[in-house]
Every structure is written in structure tokens, then in C-alpha cells.
């Protein structure tokens, strides 16, 4: 429906929790291996159809190293946070000019920061996961991190807040485990040996407090119940290569979205017999960023290494220009 060509390779995309037509895109030069990063704020064209199917740039911020992930603040409509590959976490305010950004640059991770997630319930804190094996909890009212969670034995690729419990989050790591944490407890509450390969992403079911999904290098997505972590509730096979990101739908309990190094974006219903609902192959390179809008049911977004960002309603061809 709408597309945008970024100068760098896309790494992450997020819908704004405040504005239904706004997305945040994190990109990196030279595939994130060497070079700068840029954070874009983009708007969908107005419904009149005069935009010609292009996302409209609102503003963009440059960083000195690749941006691997980004997230909107849940408390301030213009505030966003970026996970930068030099180990820093940077806060940007889209309502301020580029000269006064970043608002803050937090340097505590010693290696690349790979994921960032804002607490959707308490809205005042966010998590960062890094290749230095740690997850850090940050709050806007403190100058340094509140806590560091260090149990993983390899890079932590993703950390995700529970959508239904303000103190609980999960972290996915290259040590093949997913850990469930309570920020009030000194150690993790649960360790799930989730896959036979590295786990690259995890996300919580928005309607079931006990259910989470994991995505792995072993090409599968698995859905787990934390009360019975011995076996997955469902195993979704279909991707041809490692699954890079997984996200539960904000609108339907059993709907999942995943993207992979096989260059496809897939939608799944993990309770159905035929779990695969749709496979979108509109990207011509690795797809690294996906999101589902919480404000518009069925609106999807993806960003990939082909330097393109797509936003489209489920069921339509992402490449079709809006009439």
C-alpha cells in the first residue's frame, strides 16, 4: 500500500502507539556491518490518496554506528529510543530539531545493543538486550540503568515485556534458551531450552499472560506456555531460513507474524490446523523488521535489507500502489 526507500538497509520498524499513521524505522549503512545508522519517522499518506503510495518523511536522525532496533515511547508521543551497535542506547525526540537530538545517550553495554522494548503497561521504562550477554532495565527518571540481568551465556538477541504483567519480561539468547524474568526477583523465574539453535526473537501473547512465542535459527517459530515449558504448544515450520523476528497480533489472540532470512514475511494462526495464513515475498533481501499496528486492525509493516519499508493492510499486495 505504501512504500519508502531508505538510504540505508532496514533493521527495524515500529508503529507509533499514539498516531495510527506514523512509523519509526531503524536503518544501518552497509548492512549494519560498518558505518552509520539513521532513524526515520515516516507518515502514511493521508486517506485522500494524493500521496501516490509513498510514506512521507517527517524527520530523521543520524547515529555514528548502525541501528539494530528501535521503539517508540509509550508515554510521550514523540519520544523514541534506538539500540545502536556501538553499545549505546539513544533517546530521540521527533518534535525537536536534529541539533538538539539525541536527548540522551546511555553508554553501559560493552557490545552491540540488539534489541529495545518499551514497557507497554507501566510506560516509564524500557529494556535493552545486548551482545555482552546482558539485559538492562532503564527508566526515564534515572540517569543510569536500574538493573542488569546477567544469566545468559551468549549474546542476548531480544528482550520483550509481557503485555499483561508490568513486571515480567522474556529474553531470547544465542545460548538456545529463553528466560522469563520478574524485575523484582534477583534471578530469572524460568529457563526454557526453547530451540536447538540460537533463539533470535521472542514476544508475548497480548491476550494470554502465560503464552509466548520464540523464533530461532532452526527455521521454526514455537509457542510456549510458561506453566508447562517442557513442550511447545505449537511449532510453526515453513520458513526456509532462520526466523529473525516474531510478533503477536495486538488484535487477535492466536495470530502471529514472523520474518526471516528467507526474505518472506509470514502470518500464522498457531491454533489452526493449517497454521500458515499468508506468506508475503515482497522483499528482495533479508527482512529484519516487522510490526503490526495496535491502532488499525490488520495493518502490517516490514523493513528489509533491500532498503524498502512497506506498510500494507493484511490481505493486499504490499507492492500494489494505493489507488
Amino acid at each position: 500500500m505504501a512504500v519508502f526507500k531508505t538510504p540505508f538497509n532496514g533493521y527495524a520498524v515500529r508503529f507509533s502507539p499514539f498516531h495510527e499513521r506514523r512509523v519509526l524505522v531503524g536503518t544501518s549503512q552497509n548492512f549494519g556491518i560498518l558505518g552509520n545508522g539513521r532513524l526515520h519517522v515516516l507518515d502514511l499518506p493521508p486517506p485522500g490518496g494524493s500521496g501516490g503510495g509513498l510514506l512521507l518523511p517527517v524527520c530523521a536522525f543520524d547515529t555514528a554506528d548502525a541501528i539494530y532496533d528501535c521503539a517508540w515511547s509509550e508515554s510521550h508521543e514523540s519520544l523514541a529510543v534506538a539500540a545502536v551497535a556501538d553499545g549505546s542506547v539513544k533517546l530521540f525526540d521527533a518534535s525537536l530539531p536534529a541539533s538538539s537530538n539525541p536527548l540522551r545517550s546511555l553508554h553501559e553495554h560493552s557490545r552491540e545493543v540488539h534489541s529495545v522494548d518499551w514497557n507497554p503497561l507501566r510506560r516509564d521504562s524500557f529494556l535493552t538486550a545486548s551482545w555482552d550477554d546482558s539485559v538492562k532495565l532503564w527508566s526515564l527518571d534515572r540517569p543510569a540503568s536500574l538493573r542488569t540481568f546477567r544469566e545468559h551465556a551468549y549474546c542476548v538477541y531480544s528482550a520483550a515485556w509481557s503485555a499483561r504483567h508490568a513486571d515480567v519480561f522474556a529474553s531470547a539468547s544465542g545460548d538456545r534458551t529463553v528466560r522469563v524474568w520478574d524485575v523484582r526477583d534477583p534471578a530469572s523465574s524460568l529457563v526454557i531450552p526453547a530451540h536447538d539453535h540460537e533463539v533470535l526473537s521472542c514476544d508475548w501473547n497480548k491476550y494470554d499472560e502465560c503464552s509466548l512465542a520464540t523464533a530461532s535459527v532452526d527455521k521454526s517459530v514455537r509457542v510456549w506456555d510458561v506453566r508447562a515449558p517442557r513442550a511447545p504448544l505449537a511449532a510453526l515450520a515453513g520458513h526456509a531460513y532462520a526466523v529473525r523476528r516474531v510478533r503477536f497480533s495486538p488484535h487477535r489472540e492466536s495470530l502471529l507474524m514472523s520474518c526471516s532470512y528467507d526474505m518472506t514475511v509470514r502470518l500464522w494462526d498457531y491454533r489452526a490446523d493449517d497454521a500458515l495464513l499468508a506468506a508475503y515475498d515482497h522483499h528482495s533481501e533479508f527482512v529484519l523488521g516487522i510490526d503490526m499496528s495496535a491502532l488499525v486492525d490488520g495493518l502490517l509493516a516490514s523493513a528489509g535489507w533491500d532498503e524498502l519499508v512497506y506498510v500494507w493492510p493484511h490481505g493486499t499486495d504490499p507492492r500494489a500502489v494505493m489507488p
Binding site: 514497557n119 516509564d124 534477583p186
Partner: peptide, 20 residues
């Protein structure tokens, strides 16, 4: 707030630099 909750639980360790 998150910071109050974490500090009340006694697990807070602000500004820890992760040394590999």
C-alpha cells in the same frame, strides 16, 4: 513506577557496566 518497584525489591544495581 518501575524504578520504585525495582528499588523496593532490593535488586536495583544502578549503572552497572557489563565487563565481559
Amino acid at each position: 513506577s518501575t524504578s520504585d518497584v525495582v528499588e523496593a525489591s532490593g535488586t536495583a544495581k544502578p549503572g552497572e557496566i557489563v565487563n565481559t
